[in-house]
Computed example of a mutant assay.
Amino acid sequence: MKRKERKLILALDTGDRQRVNDLVKLLYPRVDYFKVGLELFTSFGPEIVSQLKHQGCKVFVDLKLHDIPNTVGRAAVSLAKMGVDMLNIHLSGGIGMSRAAVEEVRHYAAEQGVAAPLIIGVTVLTSTGMTDYSSMGYTDTLERRVVRLAQMGKEAGLDGVVASPREAQSIRAACGPDFVLVTPGIRPLWAAKNDQQRITTPKEALDLGADYLVVGRPITAAQDPLSAAEKILAEMEGE
């Protein structure tokens, strides 16, 4: 698979339709990739995806699908029918569920003669620190679990995973150069940490091997979102 270009994805983590419209109007096309998360999707459904696609945006629908294989496969196809560019599943659902999503979406895309969206697996949320992780009963290290889930995702045929930049190098070593790494938990030095635990700056994330950087509040909560986005893009571009 051809290595994906490095991109900034803006997280539209809001249920405010006007706020979404304002951000897209302000930032597009300097930022052309937008993440539709659980709050936004449950507020407006497929309509918000259609709106963003009509405006020319690329869309990552972040629903972390997790259910029995048949249900996840069908749900993933429903998202593919919306024309999304990226969707994700939660790897804790297992390899059978992961394979179902891959097989169903790629079968649909081949049948329709369209490009399949990237299918990405969520490993461990970047809001999860060691205290929460240990309380779940896991005995291996957090990084080892992330890498093991990433390897399972690759075996299932996924295009890549969502993971903290702090695990990016280990995933890259285990899964190879073409495996796509989508990294939330990006916090420039000038931004607040918020509820994220395993974070890095944009430059650090890219240096560690990330392909896509997902950034929300450092841009959306800034007094000047366009200026904040420009600063992050400049850092990504090595300026």
Rank of each mutant, 00 (worst) to 15 (best):
L189C: 00
G176S: 03
A173D: 07
I89F: 08
L38Y: 15
S134C: 03
V24H: 10
R30D: 15
N88T: 06
N194L: 11
R166D: 07
S135N: 13
Q223S: 14
D159V: 03
V49L: 04
D140A: 10
L26M: 15
P165R: 02
Q18C: 07
T71P: 03
L12M: 13
E204I: 00
E103Q: 15
G113R: 02
V84M: 03
A210N: 01
E239V: 14
V114D: 01
S135G: 00
I171V: 12
N194H: 10
A163G: 11
A205E: 00
P202Y: 04
P29S: 09
G96F: 05
A115S: 14
L12E: 01
F179K: 04
C175T: 05
R6Y: 02
G129E: 07
K81H: 09
L213D: 01
G37T: 06
G93S: 08
L91F: 06
V49I: 14
V162A: 06
D62S: 08
Q223F: 10
G73C: 09
A210W: 03
R99N: 04
H107Q: 09
G56F: 07
G56C: 05
V124R: 01
G238I: 09
A101L: 07
D195E: 06
D195K: 07
D32V: 04
I95E: 15
I119Y: 10
G216M: 08
E103K: 13
L125R: 03
R3T: 14
A115P: 00
R6C: 07
G37W: 09
V182P: 00
L87V: 08
K58Q: 12
G160C: 05
L118F: 15
L63A: 11
V114W: 06
K7R: 14
G56V: 06
A234D: 11
I219V: 15
P202K: 00
L208W: 05
A174V: 01
T141F: 05
V49D: 09
R148L: 13
L26Q: 15
